[in-house]
Every structure is written in structure tokens, then in C-alpha cells.
């Protein structure tokens, strides 16, 4: 064989780190899809939610700040983000009811800027790393050496997606969320408290963003502009079909995998185009996304 075993191992490591990055994109994309499904609005601040969740966790857990135990800090940060999501809907988004969708979109873009600057003002603009109990540990499978963080990111993401998938399939609240997104008026008729359900969806999106933030900050440094990778996650959601939770995750994984391989194969500068080129191709050849749930309404 012309190619040595070292080459295969390199490839494996590229795949794993691509999947780990892709998991974070996938989780942000999940946030996009959740809010889009439930309210037909797109939350362009989802990436900044992720960044905010990461900073809240760093603030709680890192020794230079509060230094709370990691396993207490993480659920606490997730809860804080869920409450923030709920309150955001209750006091801001709900007031926009009846306004055109574009108003909500502009609002969330503005919100992203606000989060970025507020976080910068509080915790400074330098990159920071979340200190986790498993930092620097490695997993060895034969000759393959994997960062513990990367494996954890992939596993947690898969579990969370599975949980959300089952939640929407089986749980009463999950079904009510689906129902409210498919036909809001009919949801009122069957006695679903639609407004509260929508606030709960924002809370869920906040919690998912916090998980993404924890995972991201444990495998690499975050700074207030990290939230801009929400744009890549947006591409992931589009590739996945924007209406499908597993689709969002797979879209994220696709983008995560494309990046390292594009960087490997293409000259620097061109490789960053790759995720968006894929999004463009998907939009041209399968406009509803790979896992689209869209269906034409009967007239």
C-alpha cells in the first residue's frame, strides 16, 4: 500500500475533530429549528445564546471567578439560560405578536449584538477556556489518540438529540409544541396554552444553547465574537431542512466534517468557502433540505 497507517490515523483524527465541531454546529442548528418550528421565526441570536451560555458556565465554574463545582455549575448555567429564553419570549418576543416575521428576525439580530457587547463588557474580550474535570485527558483506542473532550462532545450531542427526538415524539408537552407549530389556531381550539408553550420553546432553545456553549468552551477557547459561528449553524439547519431535528444535527455534522477535509485538500482561504458552497448546492438541488418535513398544504 502506498499510504501508510499513519495516514489512516490522521484521517480518523480529522473525522473525530470534525464530528466534534459539527456537533456544536448541530446543537446551535437544533436551537434554530426548535424556534422556527414552534413560532415560524428565526432566532439569529442562537449562536450568541451559545456564547452567552459558555460565558455563564465559565463565570460559575472557573476558579478565577466563582469556582463552583463543575457538575453543579453546568446544570445551573443551563437553567439560567432556560429562564433567560423564557423571559425573552415573555417580555420581548410576545410583544411582537402580529408584526411581520422580518421584525422578529431584525430583533434577534440586534439581540445578538447586545449579547456580544454585554458579555464583552462583563467578562472582557480575551478568549477564555472552560476548565473541566476531564481537561487534557486522552482516550487511546489502539494507536488512535482522541481528546476526551471531543468524544464527550459527540456523545453528549447524540444523547441530547435523541432525548429531544423522543420528547417531541412521546411527551405530551412535546406533542403540544408540535401541534402549536403546525396549526396555531387549532392548538387554541383543543385547549393548548399556546403562548406559554412558545415561551417554553424559547426556554428549551436557551437550554440547548447552553449545552452547546459548555461543549464548545470545554474543547476550545470562547470570546464574545464566537457567537458568529451561528452563521455556520444556520447553514447546517438549512442543509438539514429547517424543520427536522435529526436533520439539523446531521447538517451540523456534515459541515463539521467538510471543514477539516476542505482545509486538508484546498489552499487556505478557499477552504472556508466549503460549508457555504455545500449549502448552496443543497438549496439548488434539494431546496427543502435533505430531511425536509415540509409538505404542501391542501387548498
Amino acid at each position: 500500500m502506498p499510504r501508510g497507517e499513519g495516514f489512516d490515523l490522521d484521517m480518523m483524527q480529522l473525522v473525530i475533530s470534525g464530528l466534534a465541531n459539527g456537533s456544536v454546529y448541530g446543537l446551535i442548528a437544533l436551537g434554530f429549528v426548535l424556534i422556527y418550528k414552534a413560532t415560524e421565526a428565526v432566532n439569529f441570536a442562537q449562536g450568541d445564546f451559545m456564547m452567552l451560555g459558555a460565558f455563564i458556565t465559565i463565570w460559575l465554574a472557573n476558579p478565577q471567578f466563582l469556582g463552583i463545582d463543575f457538575w453543579i455549575a453546568v446544570p445551573l448555567a443551563i437553567s439560567i439560560m432556560a429562564v433567560l429564553g423564557y423571559l425573552l419570549d415573555l417580555f420581548v418576543i410576545r410583544k411582537m405578536f402580529g408584526q411581520p416575521q422580518i421584525a422578529v428576525v431584525i430583533l434577534t439580530i440586534a439581540l445578538g449584538f447586545i449579547i456580544r457587547f454585554v458579555v464583552g463588557a462583563i467578562w472582557k474580550h480575551e478568549p477564555q477556556l472552560l476548565e473541566t474535570p476531564f481537561a487534557g485527558r486522552e482516550l487511546r483506542i489502539g494507536e488512535l489518540v482522541l481528546g476526551f473532550e471531543e468524544v464527550a462532545v459527540i456523545v453528549v450531542t447524540l444523547l441530547l438529540t435523541l432525548f429531544l427526538f423522543l420528547f417531541f415524539r412521546k411527551a405530551k408537552l412535546g406533542k403540544a409544541m408540535q401541534a402549536a407549530s403546525q396549526n396555531q389556531l387549532a392548538a387554541y381550539y383543543v385547549g393548548i396554552p399556546v403562548k406559554r408553550i412558545q415561551s417554553l420553546v424559547w426556554a428549551l432553545a436557551g437550554a440547548v444553547a447552553a449545552v452547546a456553549g459548555v461543549l464548545f468552551a470545554s474543547k476550545g477557547a470562547v470570546d464574545p465574537s464566537t457567537g458568529l459561528l451561528g452563521i455556520k449553524a444556520f447553514a447546517a439547519a438549512v442543509i438539514g431542512g429547517f424543520g427536522s431535528l435529526p436533520g439539523a444535527l446531521i447538517g451540523g455534522l456534515i459541515i463539521g466534517l467538510i471543514e477539516p477535509f476542505a482545509a486538508y485538500a484546498l489552499p487556505a482561504g478557499y477552504s472556508q468557502i466549503a460549508p457555504y458552497a455545500v449549502m448552496l448546492l443543497v438549496l439548488i438541488f434539494r431546496p427543502a433540505g435533505i430531511f425536509s418535513q415540509m409538505q404542501k398544504k391542501k387548498v
Partner: peptide, 10 residues
């Protein structure tokens, strides 16, 4: 409700 106010994907 009148007409087809159902949840089409459920």
C-alpha cells in the same frame, strides 16, 4: 372549527 383546522403532520 370550520374546514380543515387539524394538525397535518401529526
Amino acid at each position: 372549527p370550520e374546514g380543515r383546522e387539524i394538525f397535518p403532520l401529526l
